[in-house]
Write a protein that binds this DNA or RNA. Sequence first.
DNA 1: TAAGATTGATAAATCAATCTTA
DNA 2: TAAGATTGATTTATCAATCTTA
Lengths: 148, 148
Amino acid sequence: LPGPVAVKGRILALVDAAEVWKGLYDFCQAQYRRHLAAAAELGMTPGDVKALLWLVPGQAQPMRALAEQWETDASTLTWLIDRLEERGLVQRGPHPTDRRVRVVLLTKQGEKIRAGLLTEMYRPPAAFDALSPTELRALSSLVPKLTS
Amino acid sequence: LPGPVAVKGRILALVDAAEVWKGLYDFCQAQYRRHLAAAAELGMTPGDVKALLWLVPGQAQPMRALAEQWETDASTLTWLIDRLEERGLVQRGPHPTDRRVRVVLLTKQGEKIRAGLLTEMYRPPAAFDALSPTELRALSSLVPKLTS
DNA sequence: TAAGATTGATAAATCAATCTTA
DNA sequence: TAAGATTGATTTATCAATCTTA
């Protein structure tokens, strides 16, 4: 990797974007593994977690709509919703007008578990404590540029 | 979320660390899904990718050592190495002194595929192009603080 | 006929028992 | 007896038919 170099009389720190991205990516992946391990402790598979997080509290959604949003197969959805329903985390119901459609709704229990997962997942990692307010502010202004 | 506030006569932008982390995490997860999709196009499962990346070119390692580094079950390892060996990406061999042990080594072909995956994975996402050199430098100085 | 969902067959991954050598 | 690896049984997840209603 190149170190600082002088260009037109100014000191310039050349940065390897690949190196920056690797650091960031590896860090986030480590957090992801940690989250999945925590979910496993609660007897939840990655699929269960994914499904719970996609559901919106208080909002009954047709299976078909969920499968599309999620870019997954309809049968995979049936399988996952079966699992969650057995544990009492979601409930299936009929569609008001179209009898082919089945809608899915989080139960109170499901909302609770989901909220817990979300809190755990989006709680800033311990490493964030090492950032000063100034650094956090800097990071805060950079992230939207990446995601927009 | 709180906006800028005046504290002791200075304007201070209060930042919600959770919001920053959520943005970063979601961004990296999206990249991860993209990588897995690309690997699937090549007929590789997430497990295959994981296994290939963990192996070190030119370095024959005992199965047992791999299982430990990787925090996975020995039988899962056997299963994955079987798959890679069938495709000619790795090769098993005997241990020089302990006849119980089998060592695993990447083939030339395996090294090539692995290098391709690594390149793809650590190539900065397109979104990085939106960052100015100054912003990239700022990010570059923040990442090590998170990972150390 | 087509849309929506489920069931049955297949692949991927993990867990428990078995086999070989130290 | 224990370490190292594999095989066989279970679970998780996906793909290809099947069934029901619009």
